[in-house]
Design a protein around this nucleic acid. Sequence first.
DNA 1: GCAAATTGTAATGCTCTATAACAATCCGAT
DNA 2: ATCGGATTGTTATAGAGCATTACAATTTGC
Lengths: 132, 132
Amino acid sequence: MHFGYALRRAQIAAFDAFASATAGHPITPPRYTALVILEANPGISQSALGEVLGTARSGAMMLTNWLVARGLAERRHRPEDARAWGLYLTRRGKTLLGTLKRRVLDHDQRFGAKLTPAERREFLRLLGKLAP
Amino acid sequence: MHFGYALRRAQIAAFDAFASATAGHPITPPRYTALVILEANPGISQSALGEVLGTARSGAMMLTNWLVARGLAERRHRPEDARAWGLYLTRRGKTLLGTLKRRVLDHDQRFGAKLTPAERREFLRLLGKLAP
DNA sequence: GCAAATTGTAATGCTCTATAACAATCCGAT
DNA sequence: ATCGGATTGTTATAGAGCATTACAATTTGC
């Protein structure tokens, strides 16, 4: 049995859990991750966001456009650097993220409930060794 | 820590191993999987191939077109059903798959070498519980 | 003060995939 | 035996996602 294959199967199952958690909202994993990053790093620039997400600047811009168009995030001028925007979650974005986080965490725990608590700890430890 | 997140990170690392193994060949995971399926199921139809791959019929056809254009697979008429083709690996396809399987398996084992043999067994067992 | 680097933006193209429509063929109920 | 429905392959089309490139505005370093 290949690790790559087994991992892919497990990730597909985990993605299904994510899709169930975000049903009704057009939220994809990158968009969800962007919301989490904006919450944890208020005022982050688009370039920095793209770097964290592992995508190009243009991709970060399209992602930001999407969030801004739906009123989930906003761009604010930064006094110390007129080139870069500072990105912030709006109240609506914070509210949506709060809801989604609860639902995603809930589905994630349900997904992990196929393992015993000891197995969960061990599994996460082994994942940490594989992808440091 | 979310399972989905940790799994995604590990799968990215495993994908890197796959990319190293197939460097120099324009082989993607779906194409590799298609070759494996064709080897194990000679004469399979395009629809069945698409179903196993979890993609639509049109996707299976473009995938098959790609394999046929490179001489890795061929379509043969089936006497019992004039609608469907039977798909087969060519000699060249079998040779390439043999080479790739060795290299992919080698890189997969190197990827798994970050764990001890006991950890490997345990990890695959837990993956099996998560994605039955 | 000026060259180089950084940031955001826009335009373009590529890849992958899904969807819908169509013809040919097979299947099953009558 | 026949006719309606299902299946298969095919084509065309569209859309999402992403990278690449080029450009203007701005900052930074020498």
